[in-house]
Design a protein around this nucleic acid. Structure first.
Length: 505
RNA sequence: GCCCCCAUCGUCUAGAGGCCCAGGACACCACCCUUUCAAGGUGGAGAUCGCGGGUUCGAAUCCCGCUGGGGGCACCA
């Protein structure tokens, strides 16, 4: 029997899409694509108290940024909709009632206060906290009377009191629980909303989900789900619990206090979705002993769910950063890199909206400029700082930066003067020509190349770290280069004069 | 407290009984390249495969116990 693969990512809209959720979504997506199945986005908004407005939008934006497109979902619909649980309430209520009528569930009138008190007493006695099944054995006519009186009630599942429940996890095999240790959990809350357990099981069934890939933290509720499937007489999908992503120090799940955790935060910080996907795929899975750079398409082809390592992995920001730089340096084309730099350059006020147009000269210039930092940027967000002097005047800098250890200040000054003269003659479209002339000049002045090039670099860029000198001169062009050189010479001359004056005082 | 999962360099991992006195990557160190910074190249350091018992001619690999880490125990998901 081959059932069509249908998987789902089912976040609850309580905040941004975080990396843990993104990894779950990724594995679901890879699995669906690899099997020619469907990847479904379902929003589990059954807790109105924890709802965060706009977070559905944020989740969708995050998934889109990662390129994890879905086949059915709240925004695009599909044959099994609606895909937002708050729009399916009647279905859950109907099924909760069905369970009561068929002896699998019961009404519970216990107040939150009573439940809390019971739990406290249990804890005090060193017992595991949980519901004491007080209402499970209420006489039917009392239940009826209280319901008619309009008393607030929830519906709880009647967990079998004896025997055991075994679930089968794709990565871990059989996991067995003793039923007597399991709880009579709430399926339908007093506000008429279902809990996760009911809504999830009902939806997975009606949406014909074939494989449930979700985080490991759900293992303990799997026996309840298995019992629900049994009570309904439904076949249970294949279960696969994905290992958790732990904080870098390994102490607990990754959370906000460990730094960026929201997928869109990573976007803002200048990470590439390709790097993010690649890194996340490798958190818990590996292709072989050597290879670790994979395109989306390669992942779809090579990924094997059964090979996922069941032990939790720590999130390593260093490795992600390395991978991001690797993608910028070695994977992205120049055009692609330039295109992605544009929003960051705009944000920094260095280019206008025209830079977005591929045919516009501004984009052509951006392309030329960022080509010089493509092999040294780790994050897209660094690009504005790395290239600022190509778009604006050189920022004010300390004239001391022009000076070289072991080189007389007068010689540096002379070097700048001579460079100005030499470059006057140069062909600025020809890096080799620029290089040749400046190397010759260094030799003429009896300086090591660095001793001449560094002052020029500072003059041109205002800093001691920059892209290659000759390519920088080329992109900057004759006019701006010579002007900056001249200004640096004046600046240094003035500086040396003041220095001499204060020294003679 | 109870239940469950997991266990190879600091981290992510390869390893499915002999190919492993354990391979790769990040991070770290050194050297090379070099106009700065990167990138790249070469090399180094880093794991008695958590510990203890078995099984076997042989175990990182199989079994048991222990320990450690993580998860869960809501009218949250």
């Amino acid at each position: 029997m081959t059932t069509r693969v249908r998987v789902r990512f089912a976040p609850s809209p309580t905040g941004d899409l975080h990396v843990g959720g993104a990894r779950t979504a990724l594995f679901n997506w890879l699995f669906a694509r690899q099997h020619g199945g469907a990847f479904i986005l379902r929003i589990e908004d059954t807790d109105q108290a924890r709802l965060v407005g706009q977070s559905i939008q944020g989740i969708i934006e995050g998934l889109k940024w990662l390129g994890l497109e879905w086949d059915e979902g709240p925004d695009i619909g599909g044959p099994y909709g609606p895909y937002i649980q708050s729009q399916r309430l009647a279905l859950y209520q109907e099924h909760a009632r069905w369970l009561v009528e068929h002896g699998h569930a019961y009404y519970c009138f216990c107040t939150p206060e009573r439940l809390e008190r019971v739990r406290q007493e249990q804890r005090a006695r060193g017992e595991p906290p949980g519901y004491d099944r007080h209402c499970r054995f209420l006489p039917p006519d009392e239940v009826q009377a209280r319901l008619e009186r309009g008393e607030a009630a929830v519906i709880r599942f009647k967990m079998p009191l004896e025997g055991e429940t075994t679930i089968v996890d794709l990565l871990r095999g059989a996991i067995t629980y003793e039923n007597r240790l399991l709880q009579d959990l709430v399926l339908l809350k007093s506000d008429g909303f279902p809990t996760y357990h009911l809504a999830n099981v009902v939806d997975d069934h009606y949406m014909e989900i074939s494989h449930i890939l979700r985080a490991e933290e759900w293992i303990p509720s799997a026996p309840l789900h298995a019992q629900l499937y049994r009570a309904f007489g439904w076949e249970m999908p294949v279960l696969c619990h994905l290992p958790l992503i732990l904080s870098p120090d390994g102490k607990g799940k990754l959370s906000k206090r460990h730094g960026a955790t929201g997928v869109l935060e990573f976007k803002r910080l200048g990470y590439l979705p390709e790097a993010m996907i690649n890194y996340l795929a490798l958190l818990g899975w590996a292709y072989d002993a050597e290879r670790e750079i994979f395109s989306r398409e390669e992942l779809i082809q090579l990924f094997r769910l059964e090979e996922v390592n069941p032990h939790p992995a720590r999130f390593n920001f260093d490795k992600l950063l390395w991978m991001n730089q690797y993608y910028i340096n070695h994977v992205l084309s120049l055009d692609e890199f330039a295109r992605r730099c544009v929003p960051f350059l705009q944000e920094a006020g260095l280019v206008g909206p025209e830079a977005e147009e591929p045919e516009h000269p501004t984009f052509a210039y951006v392309r030329e400029v960022v080509a010089l930092v493509k092999d040294r940027a780790k994050l897209l967000s660094e690009v504005p700082e790395l290239t600022r002097f190509f778009f604006t005047e050189v920022e004010e800098y300390d004239p001391e930066l022009l000076l070289q250890r072991k080189v007389e200040p007068e010689t540096v000054l002379q070097g700048l003067e001579r460079a100005l003269a030499v470059l006057q003659e140069a062909n600025f479209t020809d890096e080799a020509d620029l290089e040749q002339r400046l190397r010759a000049l260094a030799e003429e002045l009896g300086l090591k190349t660095g001793q001449l090039f560094m002052p020029i670099r500072v003059a041109i860029t205002g800093r001691t770290v920059s892209p290659g000198l000759f390519e920088t001169l080329r992109v900057l062009g004759r006019e701006r280069s010579l002007e900056r050189l001249a200004r640096a010479r004046e600046k240094l001359a003035a500086h040396l004069a003041t220095r001499a004056a204060s020294a003679s005082d």
